[in-house]
Computed example of a mutant assay.
Amino acid sequence: GVAPWLQALGRLERLRERWVERLEAHRKAEIPGRGPVREALEGLFGVPGWWLDAGPWARVGEAVRELGRLRRPQELTLRVQAHRAERPAVLRELRDAGVPVSPTPRSPWGIRVAGRHNVLALPAVREGRVEVQDEGSQLVACLCDPKPGERVLDFCAGGGGKALALAAAMGGRGEVVAHDADRARLRDTRRRARRAGLGNIRVEASAEAVGRRAPYDLVLVDVPCSSSGTLRRNPDVAWRWNAEDLGRLTAVQAEILDRVAGWVRPGGFLVYVTCSLLVPENQAQIEAFLARHPEFAPAPLGDRTGHEPLLDLPGAEAGILRLPANLPRYTGDAFFLARLGRLGS
């Protein structure tokens, strides 16, 4: 019968209420190494203890605000292809089709879709004028600030979403080289570039060939990471890795940074990105890189759109920022971005 299930749900709800009361009573306290407050954080938000140790928070209330936001459902977000359409016109088109939409307050290209809709069937998507893309990924491309005619490398391109956004922001002029260690994912990049009408994307499966084409004006590395900032759309990510895996991931990230550093032309930029909350993958990784590579220094974030989407974030003026999930008016993934300029000219 259902009675045992209802009883179990009742016990779970009472346990949840105790966790909430415990955290509220200790919200100004530092996160303890063990005990009932720590157990409440782990239990309420479904995260392992090592996340609490590696996260950017010092106090219980800070962790509650950010982890709580990451447990909320995520809204579907679209990106208008800047070289083919303008956002106001696409908004009108989608509203006329009965889709409830609104402009994203952070990304200059984004559109939020309320509720559930088969957006892949919309003409704007089928014709390549609009792509499905998280607002955080859109902001990464925006803050890379690529210029028409430049040579750009997206070294960890995955399915090509950010490479497409970079190429569109360049107005289809110049060249974006897209590379990923997983060659199967690059096939999707080719298909999406054709649909978007972007002829300035070159897909290159060989890392050696990518290096031979250096130097580049801009190198983007959206490195493999714990993906802890994507918790709202990947609830299992909290248990996909352990503390030992984090050590292996940070080693891979450092290796990628060292590899591409020499491919940036003097006066060019290296942009490092993770969709992670965790300090070892973010601030600590960049501090170690700058110690190894004195030819690089943090550079102010670029943004030719005039949208100025992140000026209210600490670190934006210095080129190193963490986009927290609890940022007002923001519904995308949490991520970290560092824009580093190579000294010289």
Score class of each variant (00 low, 15 high):
D258Q: 06
D154N: 07
W239E: 05
G344A: 12
L290P: 04
F335Y: 10
K147F: 12
Q138T: 06
V176N: 00
W5R: 10
L290H: 11
S226N: 05
L220V: 11
R95P: 03
A165I: 08
R11Q: 14
G306H: 10
L91I: 15
N234G: 03
E21W: 04
L52Y: 10
L337A: 05
H117T: 13
P266W: 15
E208G: 11
P148L: 10
L270E: 11
S137C: 05
Y330T: 06
R212G: 04
H293F: 14
W239Q: 00
R34M: 00
L41R: 04
G341N: 08
I286H: 14
A157D: 13
A63T: 09
I111F: 13
Q7C: 07
G158Q: 00
V119S: 00
E21C: 02
R212W: 15
A318Q: 11
R38H: 00
F289T: 05
E24I: 04
E21P: 01
P108T: 12
D312M: 14
V140E: 00
A168M: 09
A251W: 05
V237R: 08
V99A: 05
R265C: 09
L301P: 03
E244L: 09
R87M: 13
A181Q: 13
E17Y: 02
G211V: 08
A167G: 11
G115H: 15
Q138H: 07
R71I: 08
